[in-house]
Design a protein around this nucleic acid. Structure first.
Lengths: 223, 223
DNA sequence: TATTTTCTGTGTACTTTGTACACAATTATA
DNA sequence: TATAATTGTGTACAAAGTACACAGAAAATA
């Protein structure tokens, strides 16, 4: 049985316990029929000699998404990527320096749109096939990758996840190609359109895309 | 383009920004064929005159699950409940006092096993039907409840989630009734069994449950 | 500017999955 | 021992998903 004094601890107070918050991002790419993940080696901080996910601390005025964007841009140069939250890791000793809790995100990108360059304190950066991930990842990143991968596969089954991979207006073939890239399989045009129209999330802009044979209609997301 | 100086900010340092961490728990029960949720009114802290989810701050030596257990026990007396993490809320101004991020969990309980009593600084505590939730909930708890409910329903579709609601050995009818209660609809016996056997997660113990007409077989989870 | 090439846009038969439905066998209870 | 309640099982039908081909439009080429 807890005392009233202890119960006060459950209220947020000016002096209540605090800890650092970080976001880690599992960026997946699809190349040559293989799902890949983006890892970095860093020149400063903990686990400098280990591959790990891009990640970093949230500042006081940032949302989680702001933080994920900032971190990913700083470490990789990737911009305007769509993230989805996966889960939160808060084991007591998961960070050697202090108590840190980490919210993980995943993102999907086309690697060919994002040439890798070394930036800031990144020592190495590379795509790894999912079945060829290095052994000694920093922190608990092996676990985070595994959870993110499972989450991605589960979500792709019944949701339309296109991230920021398409322009505002796009053709149905562009969406289909994106799907094919992510899923790693060829889809039937007529069935794909049937499915996507049933979802009722796209609207025909009435415009045609120029410079493409056949003169395909341009679509956008419904608001 | 970010400078090296800024990049240092992405590393966890002794002085890096910190904020308070709390857990909120959406405890679902089912009674009289209705899914319900447990809410409290508290006598101290913010939003004292509003119904809200049980929740409270994480301490430095606690995991998220420890915290959820502690909070739920202190506010309701519930013990040894199975939780699952739902998502993390970190909008900048979601708490009036300071920056707070909240990890939400959900749990399923049998209300008849947990009589409600007022404890600690809880002023009122009650079960609410999901279609009769009060309007002015504290903080962003209306959103958290909505997300948790969706999560619960989604998970139930393709996973067997029974929390601590069933004994180690149980009959198929007991599982079915539980499902019917959570989903709020009546299921067909033969179709339900077809589905659950396809999942291949239960095994027949070979024993029959006594005291029940028809002599139903007892099943357990496969290990 | 005529011809060829490439891409778009559309419907139908078939297969798989999901849903509706009834009765004999088992055990408790009267 | 008879009655009442509950278990355990299969099949016909409906819905959703999959396989498949060709005429028309615009660009590219001759």
């Amino acid at each position: 049985m807890l005392e009233q004094g202890n119960l006060q601890n459950f209220q947020v107070r000016a002096d209540s316990f605090e800890c650092s918050v970080t976001t880690d991002i599992a960026v997946f790419g699809y190349v040559d029929g293989k799902l890949q993940i983006l890892l970095t080696k860093r020149s400063v901080g903990n686990f400098t000699n280990h591959w790990m996910l891009p990640g970093g601390v949230m500042e006081i005025e940032e949302t989680l998404e702001d933080c994920a964007n900032k971190v990913l841009f700083a470490l990789t140069g990737f911009k305007d990527i769509h993230f989805e939250q996966v889960r939160t890791y808060a084991e007591v000793n998961r960070h050697p320096l202090k108590r840190v809790i980490t919210i993980s995100f995943y993102a999907l990108v086309k690697p060919e749109n994002h040439p890798l360059r070394l930036r800031g304190n990144v020592e190495e950066i590379a795509w790894f096939d999912m079945d060829g991930i290095p052994k000694n990842l920093g922190f608990d990143h092996a676990q985070i990758i595994q959870d993110s991968h499972l989450f991605l596969k589960t979500n792709l089954k019944d949701r339309l996840i296109v991230g920021e991979l398409l322009p505002k207006k796009f053709t149905l073939s562009e969406v289909q190609k994106l799907y094919e890239n992510i899923l790693g399989l060829k889809l039937d045009k007529r069935n794909f359109r049937k499915r996507i129209f049933q979802m009722d999330i796209l609207e025909n802009t009435g415009e045609k895309k120029e410079g493409v044979k056949g003169g395909p209609m341009l679509y956008s997301y419904k608001n």
